[in-house]
Design a protein around this nucleic acid. Sequence first.
DNA 1: GGACTGACAGATATTGAAATCTGTCAGTCC
DNA 2: GGACTGACAGATTTCAATATCTGTCAGTCC
Lengths: 202, 202
Amino acid sequence: MAEALTGEAILAATEEVLRRYGPAKATVVDVAKALGVSHGSVYRHFPTKAALREAVTRRWLDAIHVEMESVLDENASASDNLRAWLQRLFDKKRRSHVDEPELFATFRVLVSESCVIPDYHIGHLVGQVARIISAGVETQEFVTDDVERTAKAVWDATDMFHHPAHAQEWGDPHIQAAFDAVVSLVIAGLRYNRTPSAAGDA
Amino acid sequence: MAEALTGEAILAATEEVLRRYGPAKATVVDVAKALGVSHGSVYRHFPTKAALREAVTRRWLDAIHVEMESVLDENASASDNLRAWLQRLFDKKRRSHVDEPELFATFRVLVSESCVIPDYHIGHLVGQVARIISAGVETQEFVTDDVERTAKAVWDATDMFHHPAHAQEWGDPHIQAAFDAVVSLVIAGLRYNRTPSAAGDA
DNA sequence: GGACTGACAGATATTGAAATCTGTCAGTCC
DNA sequence: GGACTGACAGATTTCAATATCTGTCAGTCC
């Protein structure tokens, strides 16, 4: 007998099968075949095909979360940190989409298959934005009375630069200019932001 | 013989067929059947099925453009005008999506089928935003050195409240709060906005 | 003579039978 | 005894035959 079948080995094989066949064709039988076991064995470690795919997706997203953490620079201004963080996220997604379109599409499908994964991913990244904004509020660079709410607004306002539904627009030669314009507008807004109830005054 | 077959009659029949059968099933033969003519006659007025669909779509979008014009109030502040305009657009799209999901989906498909229609639609609406911002700059309510560029940034920043790709999120009970937060952030940014080259200073 | 028809060729969509896949579980093997 | 197998039922997918649709055009009708 070879080494024992581990959840980790199954995850690696699943990712490989997904890369090779894409999300529509990758089957549990393929994964088992790649591992040289029967597909019944895979079900001993993961209750369903959906759970297996979700585990692969979560592992992939966690790597992105860690990478994004490393962008923050304690010595930089909050504006610069926010701009650099957003730029890094945009660059990562855009490059992934341009350089490996099939792989990008595969993970796009995987993320959208799950009900909890998108919330998990977005919640984590908005949390990072909130930390940047919070630091800016402490240095009085930014003004806001609700950091969480404002972080979500920044996330939403930059949506077209991270939401995969807009991936096709990321190839446009003017996309970087559009990104710069939105981020400048958002950062200007953070310097003097009010809640809607107080924002009507001219 | 009945009255002569007009382009207008064909457009009306096409819209009716699209409403009834949806974009995937609606055929030129159906349109001809609805008009009591052979499908060859339809091709005397429109060179292709795509051209026919595009004409229907353009007529539909033009009605929206006219409606949006009527939101502007010369006596209101630029902030109020911008907020009201964006809110109206959001309400229109959201209601259309919630009240008549099939019809909304149909026109969503029609718009995405054409290469020129989306640019036509977005160009027109961004032009209206530019006029609102321009008025705000004249009254010194807003600050920007490039109205067109800023108008596009406002459009992009509010993307998730008008782009049909986000329609499914419009049913979320918190969506209005998210809208308010983004619009407040954007309007705050318009009051003190700079180009990226000058935006790095803290 | 100009608006319309209807048959046609090639392209596209539909359908249902056959193949494959998911998830289960009694049984095998060390 | 616990990890694994492989046959199985029901659900899903594939594929090729069949039907329909698009766009054309010679011919019909007023």
